[in-house]
Write a protein that binds this DNA or RNA. Structure first.
Lengths: 107, 107
DNA sequence: CAGCATCCATCATGATACTG
DNA sequence: CAGTATCATGATGGATGCTG
């Protein structure tokens, strides 16, 4: 009997895409490969994102345990974002995507 | 001098995400790993997609040379979709994403 | 600085009905 | 079957003001 692609798809890939499939998740994660970043640094490093979207995506990624948020009670406040172990495991995948792009986009 | 993440990001990953970053591109490609599929088969195998979105995404993917469209003048009409070489190169990447999901989503 | 709240315009998506 | 057309709804972008 043939393997049911549909069921498999529903179970896992859907959840992955709910997290990574949006417009901003991968860009944010990509910037964080470079190391810990503050809120404003992320905003500056991600072209065309706006505050509202950045806040929203950071929460989603934090909720999915892909990034970690650390707040420091300084004045003015400092908040640092970094990848968790789970998030770091995405690095090779995203770099492969990047590589695929270099080799295959717009030839 | 430090490598400029921003510029690199803009040049390639953005283009990749324009193609693959939507809600339906990866699901469609994933189903096509199984082999050539007709329009209706795709629609049946991708949970919750609707005709309009499927048509639109298929066109986008065809335009990006990731899938190939072949129409046959039968009655009723037959249209088959399959992955191009470029599209097939995405298989390991998407399977890694899938694997990442199995290991890291909702534990 | 690191957000949250709000208003508004525009774009993307969903659900169906319809046609060659 | 393989789409196209249409309408309703929701998500997102952009500007801006407010707070601890």
């Amino acid at each position: 009997m043939k393997k049911n692609v549909k069921i498999e798809f529903k179970c896992v890939l859907k959840d992955v895409l709910d997290i990574l499939g949006g417009k901003w998740a991968i860009p944010i994660i990509y910037v964080l490969f470079d190391g810990t970043k503050r809120f404003k640094e992320l905003e500056r490093n991600i072209p065309n994102i706006n505050t509202r979207m950045l806040v929203k995506e950071l929460k989603k990624l934090e909720g999915a345990n892909i990034i970690r948020r650390e707040a420091f009670a300084t004045i003015p406040p400092t908040v640092e974002y970094s990848l968790t172990e789970k998030g770091k495991k995405l690095q090779p995948i995203i770099l492969n995507l990047y590589k695929w792009g270099e080799e295959n986009v717009d030839l």
